Amino acid sequence: MKKIFIVFAAVFLFSALAEAYSIDIRLDSVYFDNSTTTNLSNYIGKKPTLVMFFYPDCDPCQKEAYVIDRVYSYFRDKVQIVGISLSRDRYDIGDFIKEHHVKYPVWRIHSRSDLKSIGGILATPTVVIINKQGKIVAKFIGKRSFSCLKQILTNLVEGVR
């Protein structure tokens, strides 16, 4: 019985460790003249990462874009920030970027089935914060204040969390 428990504990531990590095979301360029693709995993691991999932015509998402832009300007080279549109409509995404003066990189989701690697998205905006080790440390649904996001990211940058 002890051996079975040890095996289950080991499997659980290794799956938990693997989960920290298994964020696999394929992304497509939002621009018509660019067929670039990437993966969210390319942004993870060097520094803390903030990801905002949004729909371009979502009012709370539009308000959150300004907050995320402030976070982007404040942390510059210390935090990786990425916007991911759940809409595939390049016109809507382009209008969103222009109207809200978005400075951080924005991509289109390649397939919504990829979202299961972060536990899915129930509503937008959803902000996911990932530490340098690739583990999700926070996931917020709805608008968050600059000070809330700043506090979490400052702790990650300083190695507190």
Score class of each variant (00 low, 15 high):
1 M>W: 02
3 K>N: 07
3 K>F: 04
3 K>I: 05
4 I>C: 00
4 I>E: 02
4 I>H: 01
8 F>Y: 10
11 V>N: 02
12 F>P: 06
12 F>H: 11
13 L>F: 11
13 L>I: 12
14 F>Q: 09
15 S>G: 09
15 S>R: 11
15 S>I: 13
16 A>N: 13
17 L>R: 12
18 A>I: 07
19 E>R: 15
19 E>K: 15
21 Y>G: 12
23 I>Y: 03
25 I>F: 10
26 R>T: 06
26 R>M: 06
28 D>V: 07
29 S>A: 04
30 V>S: 04
31 Y>D: 08
34 N>F: 12
35 S>V: 09
36 T>F: 13
38 T>N: 02
39 N>E: 15
44 I>L: 12
44 I>M: 07
44 I>V: 09
45 G>R: 08
47 K>E: 04
49 T>Q: 10
50 L>E: 00
51 V>L: 13
54 F>D: 02
56 P>T: 03
57 D>S: 13
61 C>Y: 02
62 Q>M: 03
62 Q>T: 01
63 K>L: 06
64 E>T: 01
64 E>D: 01
66 Y>H: 10
67 V>S: 11
67 V>K: 13
68 I>F: 02
70 R>P: 06
72 Y>T: 07
72 Y>G: 08
74 Y>N: 14
74 Y>R: 15
77 D>S: 03
77 D>T: 02
77 D>L: 02
81 I>P: 01
84 I>Q: 03
85 S>G: 10
85 S>N: 07
86 L>D: 01
87 S>Y: 08
88 R>D: 05
89 D>F: 09
94 G>D: 09
95 D>M: 11
96 F>V: 08
97 I>G: 05
99 E>C: 10
101 H>P: 07
102 V>N: 12
104 Y>N: 01
105 P>F: 00
108 R>W: 04
108 R>T: 08
111 S>H: 12
114 D>F: 07
114 D>M: 03
114 D>N: 08
117 S>T: 13
117 S>A: 11
118 I>H: 06
119 G>W: 05
120 G>V: 00
122 L>N: 13
122 L>P: 11
124 T>Y: 00
126 T>E: 12
126 T>W: 09
126 T>R: 14
127 V>N: 14
129 I>Q: 10
131 N>R: 07
131 N>C: 08
131 N>G: 02
131 N>V: 06
132 K>V: 03
133 Q>M: 14
134 G>I: 03
134 G>E: 02
136 I>H: 11
137 V>N: 03
138 A>Y: 12
138 A>S: 14
140 F>Q: 12
142 G>C: 06
143 K>V: 03
143 K>W: 03
143 K>N: 02
145 S>L: 09
146 F>N: 10
149 L>H: 10
149 L>R: 15
149 L>C: 13
150 K>N: 11
153 L>K: 11
153 L>Q: 12
154 T>I: 01
154 T>R: 05
155 N>V: 04
156 L>M: 02
159 G>K: 15
161 R>P: 05
